[in-house]
Design a protein around this nucleic acid. Sequence first.
DNA 1: TATATAGTGTTTTTT
DNA 2: ACACTATATA
Length: 767
Amino acid sequence: MNQQEITGNLNSEQREAVLATEGPVLILAGAGSGKTRVLVHRIAYLIDVLGVSPGEILAITFTNKAADEMRSRVDRMIGFGADQILVSTFHSFCVRILRRNAELLGYSRYFSIYDGDDQLTLMKQIFKQQNTDSRMMKEKSVLAAISSAKDELVDPARFREINTDYYSTKVGTLYGIYQDRLRENNAMDFDDLIFRTVELFEKHPEVLDACQDRFRYLMIDEYQDTNTAQFRLVSLLASKYRNLCVVGDDDQSIYKFRGANIRNILGFEKVFPDAKVVRLEQNYRSTQNILNAANEVIRHNHGRKDKRLWTENEAGTRVALRRFEDGFREAEYVAAEIRKDVEERRFDYQDCAVLYRTNAQSRLFEEKFLMANIPYRIIGGINFYARKEIKDLIAYLKTVDNGNDDLAVQRIINVPKRGIGGTTVAKLSAYAEAGGISFFDSICEAREVMGLSSAAVKKLAGFAALIAGLRVKAESTGPAELLRNVIRDTGYEDELKAENTDEAEARLENIDELVSKAVQYEENAEEPTLSGFLEEVALIADIDSLDDSENRVLLMTLHSAKGLEFPCVYMAGMEEGLFPSRLSLDADDAEGEIEEERRLAYVGITRAKKKLTLLSARSRMLRGEMVSNTLSRFVREIPRELIDLGDEGGRGRTPVLRGKVGRDLRDAILKPYDSGEKFGIPAPSGSGTGGRLLSGTSGRGTGAAAASAGPASVDYSAGDRVRHVKFGEGTVLSMEDGGRDILVTVDFPAWGVKKFYAGFARLVKVD
DNA sequence: TATATAGTGTTTTTT
DNA sequence: ACACTATATA
């Protein structure tokens, strides 16, 4: 392809970004401005016009899915050599470098990668060993502190220098022990992958130099979400040839909790004064109404790079706002609406996505979609690789691959049950500790360990022989066949088969799936190895396994939705306390946290191409308790004229009774339990500029679907005295239809007014 | 040692 | 509502 063919159908800013190949470049790419397109064309230009060898190009993306997509698009465009381009995530890239140079850091090349669960297990062990009271100090918060430190390239020694208060001193100690234990286990956590690579580059300039010469052209996508360690990594790699192109949008920075440093993008021009800056502000994705709503929301943030997206697309329909009594009806509405849109051929299932702030919100939608027979897929939540049976089998593979991984060995030493219990494990641990050897080695020397019964020694010998056999097998075969051996030789499969329950059946299916993943890996990898398979398993993100050919509605968190787009988007739970989350509202830096949530709202809104529906519930079930929320500020920040409220006449709320609600309930329900207008959107304030939203308008959707089950039967009604296990005696104020059950409101003198579902509150009538 | 039960705490987003 | 932990018991 020549230059004309590559840049012909780009707009002038996009073209400028493609042609700026030498020196530092910052591309400020607004949502939907065709940034992936620019990157793909830029790579094609480098190769086809400038004659750069594909192997000299490194592109870092945020997810493996994005990497795959970019690679295949380049492939389609230039038709050859695209497989030579290294497109990968930060973490995969680092593992690649680290495997080759692990010895330089005192690691073996077979190091394990620890995920969050592994980290927690390890930290719990350390707490126990250090007699740290987990009621005073939480393992998770210590891990969070360690993670932030690593994101900032702060090692334990430095950490102790900077932090001298009581709590931090303790954390510093634990941090040091944690790092020692990781090293003893020949393991790295996610943050180490970045940190250790930086360490490698800084301590071994010859390795850095080789990498610099190998990767002369660097491109970093989603640059706004890089942390300090990643920034240092990029700076080091780019420092020789300076061909660094970063692409990002400060308005879409949503990973501060993971260490993302927004200064990396806001200050790029300070670090690289000669940087060329290109702004992509034309949006090709959304309708004008959707884009305007997004612009209006994000306008409320301070300290952003000034920009305003525009589009030549049609105005489209207004942004819909639908409000409901509770989460059940919110979900019901979405199910009914999607059903209608599909039946009337406006959209297909796969055109629709439901986005929410927390994974817990998915359950209601899942239930309603199941009932309405709507095909769906949930991204995130419980990761496939986090399931017990998968983690067990992976632990076997880790044990075979890396005998120093004590965590893995301890996980499976008695799975399936071999009669090796806690006491035996404790004795072995002590012996290993004293002799400075690994846990597995102590098993091999079981006869020398004081205090072990001959029966225990025998069992341990059996286990050691099992692993030895698998290791021999691993010499001559790939991960998939090895995995089959593990499943068979350990008795794992037999144990599950013997159980003969639905749950065991499901686990067996998951195991089959893991085997097929291993087979797939062997087919696709250039050089399949056991470490390679384990690494792929560790670094896979939920979103990576998304198959876009499935015709299903997608449900995921707003975070997971970054980088995706859908014709029809539902944003659920637009409520203060949920989105923005309570934690942000109460945080020390509430201002900053809310701005981050606002960016998340911006990301959500800009995912939509044609139709956007914002949803909120007046109250919802949260950890077994009913909580009331007001409408999210992010909705209120959208001007009234951009919003379609649906049932415009605003009859106010008219609770609709459904199904077989008893007559005695009716009176109670008709009494509003909340007199004020706090549910309503604030009336237009005097300030004239278009005003804000109307007040007192209700969403509809009540009675959208038939009630699925009659409410639980109870022997009390409004006015009665009842007893609750926790709250004691109280007076029933009202009872109403809560969708699947009766919603009871009770006034407890000591606790105030509480709401329950009759089914699970188990209230007892007091005479 | 393994399992059942009661009690406790949770409470965002993820590579 | 749910998961996890500590404790009691077989």
